[in-house]
C-alpha cells in the first residue's frame, strides 16, 4: 500500500460519468460515436471531429509507462510523500494519462514497463486512478 495523499479531484457535470466510474473501480473513457476516437482528457464531445455524442466505455485498465519522474521535492499535500513517481501511462486504448506509479522500488522502473490500474478512494465519492507494475 502506498503512503501517497489522495486529494479529491475537481469534478463537474461534464466529467461526472468518468469519476462515478472510478468510485466503482472502473476506468471509463468517452468514445466518439462518430469517429470512434477515445477522448482524453474526458469531455462531453469529440475534440477530433466535433461530434457531441459520446459513449462511456470501460477500459481494460492496462497500459505501459510512457515517461516518469521520481520526485524528490514535492509541494502541498505531496511535500511529505517523497519520493513518489509522477508518470504518463499510455493506456492500451490509446490515451497517455498523467498519473502516479505506485512502486516500493522506484529505481526499478523503466519506460515501456507494463502497468495496471489501481484505485485510491478520496473519501468524497471519487477515486484516483494510479498504476502499479503488471
Amino acid at each position: 500500500m502506498s503512503n501517497l495523499p489522495v486529494p479529491a479531484p475537481r469534478v463537474n457535470s461534464e466529467t461526472q460519468p468518468f469519476w462515478d466510474g472510478t468510485a466503482e473501480g472502473r476506468l471509463v473513457l468517452p468514445h466518439c460515436d462518430r469517429c470512434a476516437f477515445v477522448i482524453w482528457y474526458p469531455r462531453s464531445f469529440c475534440p477530433e471531429c466535433g461530434c457531441t455524442e459520446v459513449t462511456w466505455k470501460a477500459a481494460s485498465g492496462f497500459g505501459t509507462i510512457y515517461s516518469f519522474s521520481i520526485t524528490r521535492k514535492g509541494q502541498g499535500e505531496y511535500r511529505h510523500a517523497t519520493p513518489y513517481v509522477l508518470a504518463y501511462v499510455e493506456l492500451d486504448e490509446g490515451p497517455r494519462v498523467l498519473t502516479n506509479v505506485v512502486e516500493d522500488d522506484p529505481d526499478a522502473l523503466e519506460v515501456g514497463q507494463r502497468v495496471r490500474v489501481v484505485f485510491h478512494d478520496t473519501g468524497q465519492g471519487t477515486a484516483l486512478y494510479r498504476f502499479c507494475r503488471a
Binding site: A8, P9, N12, Y41, T71, G74, Y78, L86, V97, R130
Partner: peptide, 22 residues
Amino acid sequence: PEAGFENSWGITVPNAYALAAR
C-alpha cells in the same frame, strides 16, 4: 477543464519537465 485530470497526482513544475527529459 483539464484540472481534474492533472492536479491530484503531485505535479510540480520540475517533475513535469522531468517527464520530458526522461
